[in-house]
Design a protein around this nucleic acid. Sequence first.
DNA 1: GTTGTATATTGCAATATTACGATGATAAAT
DNA 2: ATTTATCATCGTAATATTGCAATATACAAC
Lengths: 107, 107
Amino acid sequence: MGITKSDIFTTKQNDLAQFFKVLGHPARVAILQYIGNQNSCICSDLVDEIGLAQATISQHLKELKSIGLLKGEIEGKSMCYCINVERWNEIQQHLNLFFNNTKSNCC
Amino acid sequence: MGITKSDIFTTKQNDLAQFFKVLGHPARVAILQYIGNQNSCICSDLVDEIGLAQATISQHLKELKSIGLLKGEIEGKSMCYCINVERWNEIQQHLNLFFNNTKSNCC
DNA sequence: GTTGTATATTGCAATATTACGATGATAAAT
DNA sequence: ATTTATCATCGTAATATTGCAATATACAAC
């Protein structure tokens, strides 16, 4: 069916899965790494850096924005995408909590 | 197209994205949480616990096994699924490395 | 205003994912 | 041996995702 039965899970489970899902594409990983490696806040050479069409990159950026991981500011005629560090740390904490709380001691 | 252009990304980027992707479904989050909360290694009451059909649960378990996060042992006529703690920690480390290495200091 | 540049959105085709019923396979219990 | 219980796998329908060309939007420079 392709549809996820979100209603049978808790909000926390759905949110957590959503973070993971957005990060679950190599283009989005690559975009974050590229932006993260720039000391200054670099705009979109992304299209050249990563080998995907402009429309596709724009779509991936939108998804990263949807969970608050990126913030984009208009800078003249171009856009400046930066990592939202607060949100970044927040999400990292959520993921670590999940990992730490889910360790089992069986087997 | 629905197909991901894996070939233009590094193996590390693809692997990382794959981890995230597998964790990016609330059913799989719920499965891991449930198994993690059992002190003993509980099998598939999962079907009762989570409200999905047996075939669907089985499919999700397969994906979790595919990245080594779960190991399953046959126990009589039932299966015993456990978290592979070593792998679990390994993946947590990978994800944290990604998060720590990608923090930018702009804006 | 027109042109050029940078990004977003729309529409679409190809492929992937999710979910489930039906069917198999295996092993315990009778 | 037959039944029952527990999973796995197959086939299939519904929906989601990925990627791109085409188009739209916004703004600066001329």
